[in-house]
Amino acid sequence: MLMLECPYCGVTADETELSPGGEAHLTRFGPGASDDEFHDYLFMRENPKGVHFERWRHAYGCGKWFHAARATDTLEVFGTYPAQTTKPPQEILDKISAKRPGWTWRDLK
């Protein structure tokens, strides 16, 4: 069972109380972007075995979107943080580095 702490209401929510929102930190390519950029934005997603950054919504609780850093292979959760950001906070990156030396995810490491 995956349990994530909602950074807004502080509740440790069970997976069934949340709805998944796919990969986090996507850059939106819209009008004016090249076809390749738009294609990658639409279709190219990470599918890692290990560290992953995702969007979740506390659907049955406060209704807010947040981000979660977790490991897809062990369901270990490294941390959750509010969605008003374009990259993970340094403390969460440090925590992942301490537990999983040498990890990479897109251009993060």
């Binding site: 807004y8 209401c9 502080g10 509740v11 609780g61 406060c62 209704g63 807010k64």
Partner: peptide, 20 residues
């Protein structure tokens, strides 16, 4: 406070989300 509810005899105020 966050996640709390305050009550008296006639009513209550409950925290529903960061803006509700």
């Amino acid at each position: 406070k966050t996640g709390g509810i305050l009550s008296d005899e006639t009513g209550s105020v409950a925290w529903m989300s960061p803006d509700e």
